[in-house]
Structures are given as C-alpha cells and as structure tokens.
Nucleic acid binder design. Sequence first.
DNA 1: TTGAAAGCGCTACCAA
DNA 2: TTGGTAGCGCTTTCAA
Lengths: 343, 343
Amino acid sequence: MNTRVTIVDVAARAGVAISSVSSALNNRPGVSEETRKRIVQAAQDLGFVPSLRGRSLSAKRAFAVGLVVHRDPYVLESDPFFGSFIGGIETVLDPRDYALILQMGSEPVETLDRYRSLAANRRVDGVFLSELGVDDPRVPLVRELGLPAIGVNAELDFPMPSVRQGHVEGIRELVAHFARLGHRRLALVTGPHEFIHAGQRRRAWSDAVTAEGLPGGEIVEGDFTYDGGVVAADRLLAGRAASERPTAVMCSNDLSAIGFMARAGELGARVPEDLSVAGFDGIQLGTYVRPTLTTIATTPRLLGLEAARMLLAAVDGERVADVDIEPARLVVRSSTGPAPVLR
Amino acid sequence: MNTRVTIVDVAARAGVAISSVSSALNNRPGVSEETRKRIVQAAQDLGFVPSLRGRSLSAKRAFAVGLVVHRDPYVLESDPFFGSFIGGIETVLDPRDYALILQMGSEPVETLDRYRSLAANRRVDGVFLSELGVDDPRVPLVRELGLPAIGVNAELDFPMPSVRQGHVEGIRELVAHFARLGHRRLALVTGPHEFIHAGQRRRAWSDAVTAEGLPGGEIVEGDFTYDGGVVAADRLLAGRAASERPTAVMCSNDLSAIGFMARAGELGARVPEDLSVAGFDGIQLGTYVRPTLTTIATTPRLLGLEAARMLLAAVDGERVADVDIEPARLVVRSSTGPAPVLR
DNA sequence: TTGAAAGCGCTACCAA
DNA sequence: TTGGTAGCGCTTTCAA
C-alpha cells in the first residue's frame, strides 16, 4: 500500500516504454491509437495517478498558485469577500489539478516576505494581487521576482492583467435611487484611503452626485469594519438637529453600513424613515439585519473564477487581456426610503 | 535571472561535491567544520535557495498540509473560526517551510473527493479534520489513504490525535452566572445535530443546568447562522406571554446569538432587561452589537497553532499525544443581566 | 571526511 | 510510431 504505482509500472504492464506512456496519457501525438488504448487501460488497471512531484520537477512547475491575504486575521474573519473569492478560484483550479496555497501576512513587510519565499522556492506558479493599495509594493516585487500575477479590481493603468468588477454603475444607480426618493442631503462613508478601491468608490460617488445635480454632501473616512460604521454614525449624526443630519448615507461596505445603522438607531434616527442607509458588497448578513440592507451587490465568486482562469493562462505563457465582469448592481431592500418631509 | 542557482553551482563554487553541500546545509554530520563554512559561504554568495521540487521528489514529501473546508462558501464568509484558525496554522508552518493548501468542497461527497485527490498525487503530507460530524466519513477515508491527520475538537474516543478546547468550563460558568442572576427559565439554541460540537455543547449545558439545580428548560435546534438565531427567537418568544418566555438563553455560537437578540427586540423582549442572551465563540462582532454580547470565548488561533504543531509532528512520524488547550471561558458583557422580577 | 553515483517519477528529445 | 535516455535538483548510500 505504500509503494505507489509509477509510470514504470504502467509501461511494464502495457509493454511499452515510459515515454510512450507519458505521451499517451498527456494526449500528445506520436502514439498510435491502439497503443494509446492499451496504455490507458493499463493505467486504469493499476490505478495510476501521475506523481505531482515528478511532474513538478521535470516540468518546472509547481501546479499551485498563491493567495496572500494581507492585513490581520480579522479580515478573513469578517470580510465576506475571501470566502466566495476562494470558492471561485477553486472552481477553476480543481479541474486543472492546480492547488491554492493560502498565506496570511499580518503586517505589510511580512506579506512581502511571503511573496519572496513563495517565489524563492518556486512554491507557486503565479499569485493573485487583491486588496490592492495605492502604490502597492507588491507590484514591483512580483515583477522583480518574475512571478505571473493577476490584479483584482486594480486601477485602469495597472501594469499587469487584471479582472475588474465595475462599481460605477451600481453607485450611479444608488445615487439616482436617492435622488428619486427626494434626498438632497447625502453623505458617504469611505474606506481607508490607502486602498485603491476606497478611492474608486469615492470618485464614482462624487461623479454620480454631480451627475444627479445634487449637493456634494459630507464624506467621512471609515475603515470597512462594523466599528468604523459606528464611529461614522457618531460623526455624522451625534449632537445634530434632524435638519442638519444627512438623510441618505452610503457606506463603502455592508459591514460598516450595518454598524452605521445600529448606531443611528441609538442616536434616534430611524432607518429608513429618518435616514436611508446603503452598503456595498451584498453580504448575507445584510439580508438578515432589520431593516434589511439596501446595497450594491458584488460577485466575488465570479471575480475569483475569472482571476484564476486568467492566472492559469498567464502561467501558460499566454498574453492575457483584462477582463471586466458584470458590474455590481444596486439591490434595493428596506434600509432606504423616501426622504423625510420635515423641512 | 531565469536559471536558478542549484546545488551544483554551490558545489562548484565551494569546490566540493554536491553531497557535501547537501550534508552541510542540512546540518548533517560528515562534513568538517571548515568545509561546512566554505559551503555556507558559497551558498550565501550565490543566494542559493534549495529547490522545493527537488527536495520534494527525493524526500518523498510535499512540504505542505491541507485544510479542506466543507460546507458552502458562506461558511468562510461568516464563520470567524477559520480566519484565526488559519492564522494560527501559518504561524507554525511558515518557519518550517511548509505551506497550507486550502480546498473547499461545498458538498460532502465533493469534500471527500478533495481528500482523495490530495492523497492520490501526494499533494500534502497531512490534513486537518475540523468541523467534525457524527460518524464523519473523512475519518475512515484518511485512514485508508494513509494520510496523517489531526482532529480539531474531536470527541474523546477519536481514533487519531486531536487538539481540543474545553467547552465544559465556560458553559458551567455561564449557567452559574445565570443562576446567580436569579434566572430559572433557561433555554438553549443548539447547532445542527450532525456536528459533534453541537452535541458536546448541548450535553455540557444540560449537565451544568442539572448541577445548578435548575429546571431543564427548552432546547431548540439552530444552525449556527444569524438567521438560525432569528428563527430560534421566533420559536421561543413569538406569541408567548412574558411569563412563558425563557429569561436566559444561550445560543451555540455568537452569530446566532446576535440574530436571536435582534429578533427578540422586535418581539418586544428587551435585552438584557427582559431577557438575557449569551453566545459562544467570542467573535469581534459581539463587542460591537448593542447590547454587547456575553459569550464564551474560544481561541481558534491557538487551536490552529497547536493543530499544526501536532500535524507536523505526525508527519515526521512521531507519536503525538492529544493536546488540550486552555478551555473557553465566560466573558460577561451587557447582554446578560438579572432575571426580570415580574411574576 | 569527501566524492561518485544511484535513485525519486516525470517530460522531452532524438534515434531507431 | 516507438524506445532509449538525458535531464530536473535534491537526498542518501557507499566507496575511496
């Protein structure tokens, strides 16, 4: 039970050379149909599974790709993104017999070291670059390391192939939704400015507000956490008369929107009667809270799927073009409603 | 930049045989101190990093371990367990140059196939078995596959080494806490019965209740989700007079406790004035919601750390003994308080 | 102590 | 179309 079946065994049983076995099993030309059949049969009889290690050494490939999650463990805990994203990745990797290596680096420097060691011992054939920061040091690093990489929701001028999910459409829909409901005093709770997607969402917001001919409204920086939403609610609502409070707020992710709503309630602002609140992401939790959360729903699973497909293509040496998946769309639930009539 | 430095290069530069390089760099005896120094120097000069692939083939090791998350992607999304658990694992793997391969199988059958293929091509040297179910089919499978495995929070009679975090102490503390606050009508929201830890917590609960001399109270089965908590609250509170409602409820995890609290509020039960609610896990979210959630705090990071340590030992062929880490303890916050006086 | 050489299991090239 | 063989980069055994 311990000695595995190797290509030699298969060759012996089929009465051919190992090179023929290799060719036959990898659908390479140069083997007659008849011998191919015999070889396949032999392989099946013996339960032959090609050794990844042998292949790996010979093919100079790891048959694995890497995802390094930076920031602290709490992210993976609470960020719904990665679960689905990874699920999407797996969908593509599995049939191609690739594996996903997950690493976590809590601090930025540590994260970079992870990429370095992944590259140094050729543990992976490529990596995903997600949660990109402004001037992200990983970009020059993977370049230098010669590691194929795919950017996830990167800027347009990103120097390597990336998959993107549009946020502009959904945000425009949301702002139009607010406008239609009669809201005039808007506010935005952003993510930390060091993340590019925080900036992206913020710009899309401003553009949409301008396009609707609405006043600019307040913008406060959040941090993508529930607590950040609580703090933002304090900043925007506490100690203010109703007439000075915004009536419609978009938070840059659902988790902070949920925190925002909770705190708003404590500060005497009823959602959605006094205040409309919307998030961004479309996490499950948003359908459970009361009121249910209006949001802009993303599809991280699709993002992961496409990113993996692209990465494997890049690993294969293909030139891969950027891909835009279906943009995130507005999902209206019950946390948004008509603007309050009072003044 | 593309041709990597190999052991041959190092040997050439140091003017020795590759076997000596191997011995020297792996701190094996049989090399004079002087040559060892020369070799180490040469390796350093050349920036030599031993190829994992070569080692892997020769050593018959993958230098990787696997974690297969079963159940659907939503788990990774919302379950705080895995983020920290993986973080703990990494802490141990990294210095030993091991990597973590993460796989997701949405359906049970699929999950089993993942283990099979991981074993078939020797992608990993061992696996973690977490979220164990009753009569979990993975147990006989990894046995059959000859894959070293470590159980996480397994039953006492588990046939392979496991790491456990005690739940009995915390639950006893919680029940005592309830008793001290004057509660007499308790209730428990369990997890799905197919998970062993659901049963474990349930038994611990019953034992503790008996030990405190309290009436048994109602038990309803939840599903570890926010929504499950909502449903449980409906079951226990809806359409009942205050005098017939339980006054203290433990939910088998925090997420469902938070759902429970939310629904309880809608059903007119103020927490903690009318109703005390406690969870289990100690997730961050519990400190953010209002009232903040009393819970029994686990330390998944430590669990992962210990599990990884054990798994590597098992991979090394050592006989590893079960490990009990510090039990989960009660953390009193504001969702529990004195029993209501009415009636 | 040192070095030569035989694997590990596969791919790929080249000659037959 | 086939088969032999030289790597891939390392560990390990066995002579020298």
